[in-house]
């Protein structure tokens, strides 16, 4: 089944840590424009799966094709492909020794994607859109958690990525700040950005995504549209998981 819209193709992905098998063979195609939410209990391997997609974790077996190139191959220029895969972390990971503006412009300027002036104009434009233009000269530790995460999203966007990977982007936030981050992500999804989101926010998954993956014990135990997964869960593990979180 060939599909020209496939952006990321994961084939029999396996990952061991020491003696623990975290991913036991995952196969999935992610299409252009997909908003895929990955749900599952902690320890089910969902974060590991996401971190394998841009090779922050090196898989033990299987392959990951991104726009046709096998990222697990030694011959591929990983840095070049990573420029097209934005990532947002649970702990934000902003660079504390740089101002917000420098956080946003450092990668595009260093990697010669944009000149300093272009990068700053782009960064200010994106900051404006998430309502943080007035904080450009501040340092990350002067911002609240929600603001930091919005900046982190903008930092990834400044590289003009083809796909955005979110690793539990709201899990480290105070409850009142979750909304502001989800709103930014929702806008992004509506603009057609391809997104893979590991999340515990079932409301977001249900409302924004077009596909939901339920990971359990290192495999995709169930996959479908949000209506199918949340409305009519087939496997027992998913039923009991949903009963606990909803």
């Amino acid at each position: 089944m060939e599909n020209n819209n496939v952006m990321i193709s994961v084939k029999d992905l396996k990952k061991d840590f020491e003696n623990v098998q975290v991913l036991k063979g995952i196969d999935i195609d992610i299409n252009k424009g997909d908003v895929v939410c990955v749900i599952g209990a902690s320890g089910s391997g969902k974060s590991t799966f996401l971190r394998c997609l841009n090779m922050l974790e090196v898989p033990t077996g299987g392959s990951i094709f991104f726009e046709g190139a096998d990222l697990t191959s030694d011959k591929v220029d990983l840095n070049l492909h990573r420029q097209k895969m934005g990532m947002v972390f649970q702990q934000f990971n902003l660079f504390p020794h740089m101002t917000i503006l420098d956080n946003l412009t450092c990668a595009p300027v260093m990697l010669k994607k944009l000149t300093k002036t272009e990068a700053e104009a782009k960064a200010m434009d994106l900051l404006e859109r998430v309502g943080l233009a007035d904080r450009a000269k501040d340092y990350p530790n002067q911002l609240s958690g929600g603001q930091k995460q919005r900046v982190a999203i903008v930092r990834a966007l400044c590289m003009d990525p083809e796909v955005m990977l979110f690793d539990e982007p709201t899990s480290a936030l105070d409850p009142e700040m979750v909304g502001e981050v989800l709103d930014v992500m929702k806008t992004l999804a509506q603009k057609g950005m391809t997104m893979v989101v590991v999340t515990h926010e079932m409301g977001f998954a249900r409302e924004v995504s077009n596909r939901v993956l339920f990971l359990d014990d290192g495999v995709i135990a169930e996959e479908g549209t949000p209506e199918e997964v949340f409305g009519n869960p087939k496997c027992e593990r998913l039923q009991s998981f949903l009963a606990k979180v909803l």
């Binding site: 990573r82 260093m110 990697l111």
Partner: peptide
């Protein structure tokens, strides 16, 4: 996370 964030940007 600092190294990971930097690498994820393509550095």
């Amino acid at each position: 996370g600092q190294m990971e964030a930097a690498r994820s940007l393509g550095l």
